[in-house]
Amino acid sequence: MATGGRRGAAAAPLLVAVAALLLGAAGHLYPGEVCPGMDIRNNLTRLHELENCSVIEGHLQILLMFKTRPEDFRDLSFPKLIMITDYLLLFRVYGLESLKDLFPNLTVIRGSRLFFNYALVIFEMVHLKELGLYNLMNITRGSVRIEKNNELCYLATIDWSRILDSVEDNYIVLNKDDNEECGDICPGTAKGKTNCPATVINGQFVERCWTHSHCQKVCPTICKSHGCTAEGLCCHSECLGNCSQPDDPTKCVACRNFYLDGRCVETCPPPYYHFQDWRCVNFSFCQDLHHKCKNSRRQGCHQYVIHNNKCIPECPSGYTMNSSNLLCTPCLGPCPKVCHLLEGEKTIDSVTSAQELRGCTVINGSLIINIRGGNNLAAELEANLGLIEEISGYLKIRRSYALVSLSFFRKLRLIRGETLEIGNYSFYALDNQNLRQLWDWSKHNLTITQGKLFFHYNPKLCLSEIHKMEEVSGTKGRQERNDIALKTNGDQASCENELLKFSYIRTSFDKI
């Protein structure tokens, strides 16, 4: 039985969820670079991206490699990797027998973001014989899940209580170790020597080791999670996991709180800001991140802002960003909400898709409305799209047979046209069989910064309504002859009103 693990408890099935942008060198404390989270699957090609990484700022997932063999891993080693800020997950990587050479110096898994409450997941690794993470000293947050690894031993010899604050939620089941077939031998045991430290858990006094050649490092209890030197002297209180010299914040392997210019500090002093819960960055760093993602459509890219001495992905609820200094300031009234469309555009074809934009005031991208039916549609669209004030790209209304009016965009005031449909149009209306009105132009103002209007096959939309939009939106004169079809717009509506004058002759039985 794995020490510190839980057996036999019912657990939810383990679901495996399925960018080499360097964020800056980590400095003297770390020998390499800070790398983003990685999802490495199918083959070993991307694994080489770990070569210079000291910190993975995010998670590391290595999974679904069915053609790899043990010899493929023999020359692979990433000794610079010290810390993973989120979680480490391995799933069905064939041929991998140990992690001792792959990650010989991995010391800390912070667990800032977890995989279903777990910071370390080893699942269905069919050839893994031992973990071998002999320098792993601290899992700051989260638990361990090690399950269905039929060859995995050296679990009962690990004292997880020396690595985690609590072992109650560890789930370590259905491994070879369960069948008591392992016969784990710690260093020196074969020669009758006791080389590794022994600890007591559940009444068992057991030597602690990761492999037959690597003991588990056990520091004096007084050192807590700070770690200790090879001689057993406690590291500085700002260290986490390990250090090369005692009581020196510049000799830590990793930091308990924050890293700044080669030393570990309790908090980031001005003019620095907390970033990702582990390091200090200056304003320029946060500003660069903001600008890199301002026009990016890459998933996970955030326009970072500053709030409460932190550089964070977005302002919290009730705050909006001051564009001059990136500071989050309290909103006066309802907060603006910028919604970034991942692929640059979004099609609204149902109430469900409209709900995804609920509360958005600025759309960074283009909207395509293609709704053919739905219950209580006008009210639903207004509830979900009615706060949109600005669209950076274009607005396209296409084959939306259920629409009679666009009044559900009740606050839309600006279409920038930074991206144009077919390279020309910022407003595009095609084949809307029941569209009769755009907006009530006596109450609604709309500016279209650039781009043209396109109207074709809107049989109940009168040309007068379209011409009014040209005047109000500032697009009059931009359109070419064929942009607004004269014969297919309003051709099934009563669009022309003329005053009919009647004269009559009164007659009676005795007068003409």
Rank of each mutant, 00 (worst) to 15 (best):
G232Q: 05
V253Q: 02
Q61R: 15
R41G: 04
S161D: 13
N242G: 04
V265D: 04
G333A: 12
L327V: 04
H214K: 05
C209I: 03
L106H: 02
K217E: 04
H28E: 06
Q204N: 12
C264R: 01
R298C: 09
G95R: 05
N175I: 06
L64Q: 01
S213Y: 13
N282W: 03
K191G: 14
I158F: 04
V121R: 04
F115M: 01
C223P: 02
T250H: 09
L76T: 01
Y272V: 08
L332S: 13
L81Q: 04
C315Q: 05
K129L: 02
F73G: 02
E314P: 03
R162L: 10
N322K: 09
F78W: 03
L102Q: 00
N135Y: 00
D169M: 13
H290M: 09
L99A: 04
E151G: 07
L131Q: 00
V34S: 04
P270I: 13
N242F: 05
E33M: 15
G203H: 08
H127F: 15
Y319C: 11
T199K: 11
N309I: 03
C243Y: 00
Q276S: 11
C268G: 00
C268V: 00
E207W: 15
D177T: 04
F116L: 00
R279K: 05
G203K: 15
L240W: 03
G333T: 04
A190E: 10
L99E: 00
K67L: 05
G300K: 15
Q287W: 14
Y87V: 00
G32V: 10
N322Y: 04
Q204L: 07
P270N: 14
E238Q: 10
S237Y: 08
I109T: 01
D159L: 08
S237I: 10
D75N: 14
V173S: 09
D277L: 10
P36D: 03
F275Q: 00
S323H: 14
T107I: 14
C315F: 00
Q299C: 08
R256F: 11
N52A: 10
K191P: 05
I40G: 02
K191C: 08
S77L: 11
E97P: 06
L260V: 13
I82L: 10
R298V: 06
P70H: 10
Y94N: 02
S143P: 05
E147L: 01
V93L: 07
V253A: 12
G142P: 00
G111H: 01
C186I: 04
K176R: 06
L152W: 01
I185R: 06
Y154H: 15
A119Y: 00
L60T: 04
E124W: 00
T329L: 08
C264E: 00
E33D: 14
C223G: 09
L114S: 01
P187R: 04
I222E: 13
G111Q: 01
P70A: 08
A190N: 08
L326N: 13
C315S: 02
N282C: 01
D72N: 15
C293V: 06
A190L: 10
R92F: 01
P316I: 06
K80W: 10
R162C: 11
R298Y: 09
R110S: 13
W160C: 02
T140I: 08
G232W: 02
V218Q: 10
C186S: 03
C243M: 00
I84F: 00
M83K: 04
I312Q: 03
I185Q: 05
K80Q: 09
F258N: 03
R141Y: 00
Q245A: 04
G142W: 00
P70R: 13
P70V: 11
D248H: 06
W210I: 04
V34M: 04
H274T: 15
T320D: 08
S225H: 14
E49K: 15
D261A: 10
P313K: 11
E314R: 11
S225P: 12
K217P: 05
T157G: 05
S323V: 12
H28F: 10
N135C: 05
T199R: 07
C252S: 02
D75G: 02
V55D: 02
V265K: 06
F205L: 12
T189D: 07
H59M: 06
H302N: 11
L90I: 03
C196G: 09
L44G: 07
N42Q: 00
E124R: 01
C234T: 00
T329I: 12
L64K: 00
C243R: 01
K251W: 03
H236W: 01
I84S: 00
T140R: 05
C223L: 01
L102K: 01
C235D: 01
D177C: 09
V173E: 11
L174F: 12
V144K: 00
E57N: 15
N309W: 06
N295C: 09
W160I: 00
T107L: 04
M125V: 00
T107M: 03
W278V: 05
K224D: 10
Q287F: 11
H28L: 09
D75T: 10
K176D: 04
L133I: 08
L131S: 01
C186V: 00
I122W: 00
V173M: 04
T68P: 07
G241V: 02
C243S: 01
E238S: 07
P187C: 04
S166H: 12
S112R: 13
I158P: 05
A156R: 14
Y134F: 14
F115K: 04
D75E: 10
V206P: 11
D72R: 05
N150P: 10
L44A: 12
T211V: 08
K310H: 12
C53Q: 00
M125D: 01
N282Q: 05
G183E: 10
L327N: 14
D165F: 11
K217I: 14
S237P: 11
